[in-house]
Computed example of a mutant assay.
Amino acid sequence: MKRRLPPLNAVRAFEAAARHLSFTAAAQELHVTHSAISQQVKQLEGWLDMHLFLRQNSTLVLTDKGRAYLLELRQALDTIDIATQNLQSTRHDTTLTLSVLPNFALHWLVPRLPGFQQRHPDIRLRLLSGTVPLQQLYESCDLAIRPYQNAPEFQFDHICGADMLPVMSPAFARRHAIRTPADLQAAPKLHITHSPQDWPRWLGAHGLQDRYPAQGMLFDSHAVALQAAINGLGALMGLTPFIQDMIDTGKLMAPFPDTVQTERTWYLVAPRGRLPHKATCFRDWLLEQVTS
């Protein structure tokens, strides 16, 4: 069947101009002149025999038909883009870039990655541990692991939540004679700056309070605080997804098994729509780890 396609350069120009509602911004994106964008949009309107834009008080506005056309075109261009990425990934681009916060990477993801490498030896993983905002994420990444956010343009697959309980080195527990939860009230404690209520919540659940809340070391990274706890610098309110290996190896101990629930959760974050093959492979494997 012969397809009735409009001029594709004109389609690209219209999609960019409609997305930005600006010929100037579209010209910058496509590395052409403002005049070229204007001419290509006029060409497309002539080919369709209808107006796609209106100007209202020097502002570019889509007509109803232009708005509907933009929606369909974006889906079609996204499909072309993904099909091209999939084709290239089978020959060239086999590097999957994942943005993941350091603590989750160190203590949850990395220990499980040998299983992924064994299943998909052709996919090379690149981990970024910086806190890139989701709005900028897919300029440099394929997938991310993050707490949930209200961002409808992304798909969130639940990985795990967390409970908390005190952990410490065995030497610390002996040195400070930690035998009951009450012994933690006066013991040196390690604090996470973005979770100041962790210790008060756990102690409060046991009818206790911190006798020296202004003392103890402060950390902005749970991963660094865990290493400080291993080195005997204080007791830490540990998160259950990240401490089991250290307890199993004897680096840390959890003398009191009672946990307190937290609202912390982690999700695999992906753009909505069809994913490239390499991203689909990682998503399928990761969600298997959650359900197994």
Rank of each mutant, 00 (worst) to 15 (best):
L77G: 01
N103A: 12
T84E: 10
T84H: 01
F116I: 13
Q118M: 14
F116H: 08
A83R: 07
D81E: 01
L101S: 09
L87V: 02
D122Q: 03
L109K: 02
A105N: 03
D81S: 00
H92D: 13
H92M: 14
G115S: 11
H92I: 13
Q85S: 01
I80H: 06
L113E: 08
T84N: 02
L106Q: 11
N103T: 07
W108T: 15
L106E: 11
D122V: 07
T95V: 13
V110C: 04
A105F: 06
H92L: 15
L101I: 15
L98E: 04
N86R: 01
H107W: 13
F104P: 14
P111R: 08
T97E: 09
L98P: 02
H107E: 15
I82H: 08
R119E: 15
R119H: 07
I80D: 10
P121T: 06
D93G: 02
T84C: 11
D122R: 01
Q118H: 02
D78E: 09
Q75P: 04
Q117C: 13
L113N: 06
H120E: 11
Q117A: 10
V100T: 09
P102I: 03
T97C: 13
T90H: 04
A76H: 08
T95W: 07
H120D: 10
S89Q: 11
L113R: 05
Q118V: 06
P102N: 07
T79R: 06
G115F: 08
T97R: 11
I82C: 03
H120I: 12
L96W: 10
P102C: 12
D93V: 13
N86L: 03
V100S: 03
R91T: 14
T95P: 05
P121D: 01
T97H: 04
V100C: 06
T95K: 05
I123G: 01
D78V: 00
T95S: 12
Q117F: 08
F116L: 14
S99V: 10
R91A: 13
P111G: 10
